[in-house]
């Protein structure tokens, strides 16, 4: 009797395993990834929210201050102080950085031909993306140098006065973005080059028979087929613009007098830099940055979900 029940139990257990094997296996494979994602991404987001409610120097006692940090940010915004500058600069970055997409597309169209040595030209155009952002920053810093830099030497040839791009609070952000566009354009170019390989030659042929040429061919036949590449280029460019930090750190340290700060750099400055001891305030800035990113992330996820469903 007892042997029969244990047999039944064993059979039952085995059958559960057999029954659910297919459903369970993917979760088992996903488990390590999910675990790390939870510990290193999801959990820190909530931790940031939590820290932003405290005043804490990172060493001693943390004091609960409620929404005080956000209130300070609000007043900084109203007074057009550091936070306002950082937010405004982030906006400029978002808009200007998108220029990398059309620029990358046109370079890709230009290079998408079969002439002798085209591979070499392609790699030369791709080169800036391979070198480190730090090197890009240094090169552009030297290029912009008001006394010894190449830019002012070249402006001198055409009789234009010296301009101190990184020392002028009105020009500095655009100067840094231009440095950032150099590798980002190369990145978008490579995305479009691969995309162009997938353009259907029959459709191009059909378009040509219908008399489409030049701009109309590009706009109505080629670009619609590059949609996946455009989407990826858009995603990486937006993310690149929002996390712009290394170039600012290398080229200006947020200066002159804080006019080239963006949120990511400001957060680092108040919480983690040499003079930064305001962990709570830094966390509050991080939360604001996260909320801005969330808008884009939600949009990306939504459009990907729509694409999936469309299939």
């Amino acid at each position: 009797m007892s042997a029969a029940t244990s047999d039944a139990a064993a059979l039952d257990q085995k059958s559960w395993h057999a029954r659910n094997q297919i459903a369970v296996t993917p979760w088992l494979f996903l488990a390590p990834g999910v675990l790390f994602f939870l510990v290193y991404v999801i959990f820190p987001i909530f931790q940031s929210f939590n820290i932003s409610l405290y005043e804490w120097d990172g060493l001693g006692q943390a004091d609960y201050v409620g929404l005080r940090n956000y209130e300070d940010l609000y007043w900084e915004f109203v007074d057009r102080d550091a936070f306002y500058t950082a937010l405004w600069n982030n906006l400029i970055w978002l808009v200007m950085y998108l220029l990398a997409i059309p620029a990358g597309l046109f370079i890709a169209l230009f290079l998408n031909q079969n002439v002798w040595g085209i591979r070499l030209y392609k790699s030369l155009f791709f080169f800036p993306f391979v070198i480190s952002q730090v090197v890009v920053g240094l090169v552009f810093t030297w290029f912009y140098d008001p006394t010894f830099g190449l830019l002012n030497t070249m402006l001198g040839w055409v009789g234009l006065g010296p301009v101190n791009v990184l020392g002028d609070e009105r020009l500095v952000t655009y100067g840094i973005i231009l440095a950032g566009l150099w590798p980002q354009t190369a990145y978008c170019m490579i995305l479009y080059l691969t995309g162009l390989n997938a353009v259907d030659p029959e459709q191009v042929e059909a378009g040509r028979l219908d008399g489409a040429r030049g701009w109309r061919m590009l706009w109505y036949v080629v670009i619609p087929q590059l949609r996946p590449a455009t989407f990826i280029a858009f995603v990486v460019t937006i993310i690149g613009a929002l996390r712009s930090f290394d170039l600012i750190s290398i080229m200006t340290q947020g200066g002159p007098f804080g006019s080239s700060r963006v949120l990511a750099f400001y957060m680092f400055e108040v919480a983690l830099s040499e003079y930064g001891f305001r962990m709570g305030y830094g966390a509050a800035i991080a939360v604001v940055l996260f909320l801005i990113m969330l808008c884009f992330i939600a949009y990306f996820l939504f459009s990907m979900w729509r694409q999936e469903r469309g299939r």
Partner: peptide
């Protein structure tokens, strides 16, 4: 540290 940072930015 914080006052030093803010003020030196002001000096610049």
């Amino acid at each position: 540290a914080e006052m030093a940072k803010v003020s030196m930015e002001g000096f610049q």
